[in-house]
Simulated scan of single mutants.
Amino acid sequence: MRRGRAVAAAAERTLQFYGHGIPYIEDTGIKGRLIVIEGPDASGRSTQIGLITAKLEAAGHAVLNTGLKRSELISEGILEAKRNFAGRKTLSLFYAADFADQLENKIIPALRAGYVVLADRYIYTLLAREAVRGISRRWSHNLFSFAIVPDLVFYLDVEPEELVHRVFQKNAYLDYYESGADMGLANDMFESFMKYQAMIAKEFRRMQKRYNLVIIDGNRSIPEINADLQKRIDAFLESAHAASSKATL
């Protein structure tokens, strides 16, 4: 339990936002850490988060998992909006509301309590989706300017051919929106998927510097990817703990 106590005893830090933030919680002190795993469908995000969660909990960390479309207030509305083919900016506003609810009621309280919060996707997926659909990057960034800046952001970069292979291995189907079928890229769903995923990957590489994304080769095996991620996370947490201990002396 040594590491669990270390997280709880960490020196408080002030929330950092991408923009103006949420006014009444701007001065909130936090002790936890926010780590984001980004990547397309079938990239292995959920598998990696499960493995990382187990490892962190075994080391004594309190962990909270979160992700997109998990707000009890908004998630059903997003599904209904998609079923009714709502406009692109309408969907963006739904996702922003979903994210805001989770940020205020799940993520920030957990960070205040000293948890390690693992996010299965964050605002970056939303920014990329909107950009490739022709929505202004400035508009999207401003929409999500209330988001707090994570400590670490990993993007699992997987070739479209490998993604298709993994989808079919699971006897799953190509998702309408994750294939960009709403964009009219191709008459064939498979071809549309390949084009769309290439566009999304290009947008993530474009965002890499601005949002400090760490691009991870997601074409490797699950153990290889996990070893890479865990090594980086362990190194960060050790460094953060050392810095926090020094600050409290």
Score class of each variant (00 low, 15 high):
Ser46Gln: 06
Glu238Phe: 04
Phe85Lys: 15
Leu56Glu: 11
Glu26Thr: 15
Ala8Tyr: 08
Ser136Cys: 11
Ser245Glu: 14
Leu237Asp: 06
Ser145Ile: 08
Gly50Glu: 09
Phe144Gln: 00
Ala62Ile: 05
Lys231Asn: 13
Glu191Lys: 10
Arg3Ser: 11
Lys89Gln: 10
Leu163Ser: 03
His165Ile: 08
Glu224Ser: 11
Asp217Met: 03
Lys246Arg: 14
Leu118Ile: 13
Tyr115Pro: 03
Gln169His: 11
Ala11Trp: 09
Ile233Asn: 09
Gly29Pro: 10
Ala59Ser: 12
Lys209Leu: 09
Ile78Tyr: 01
Phe168Met: 15
Val36Cys: 00
Leu156Thr: 00
His20Ile: 07
Ala58Trp: 04
Gly32Ser: 09
Ser46Tyr: 04
Lys170Met: 12
Phe193Asn: 08
Trp139Gly: 06
Arg2Pro: 03
Arg5Glu: 15
Ile37Ser: 10
Arg33Phe: 13
Asp151Phe: 02
Asp151Tyr: 02
Gly218Met: 03
Asp175Trp: 00
Leu237His: 07
Arg133Tyr: 03
Glu224Cys: 05
Leu152Glu: 13
Ala181Thr: 05
Ile22Lys: 01
Gly44Asn: 01
Leu156Gly: 05
Pro109Trp: 03
Glu26Asp: 08
Phe193Trp: 05
Pro109Tyr: 00
Ile148Gln: 01
Leu118Ser: 00
Ala147Cys: 15
Arg133Glu: 15
Arg45Glu: 12
His141Val: 09
Tyr95Pro: 01
Glu104Leu: 14
Tyr176Leu: 11
Thr53Asn: 04
Ala113Lys: 13
Ala243Tyr: 02
Ala119Lys: 00
Glu72Ala: 15
Ala131Cys: 11
Gly4Leu: 12
Asp188Ile: 07
Ala119Leu: 10
Ala235Asp: 12
Lys231Cys: 09
Pro40Arg: 00
Ala147Phe: 01
Ile22Trp: 01
Ile107Lys: 02
Ala247Lys: 14
Arg205Lys: 15
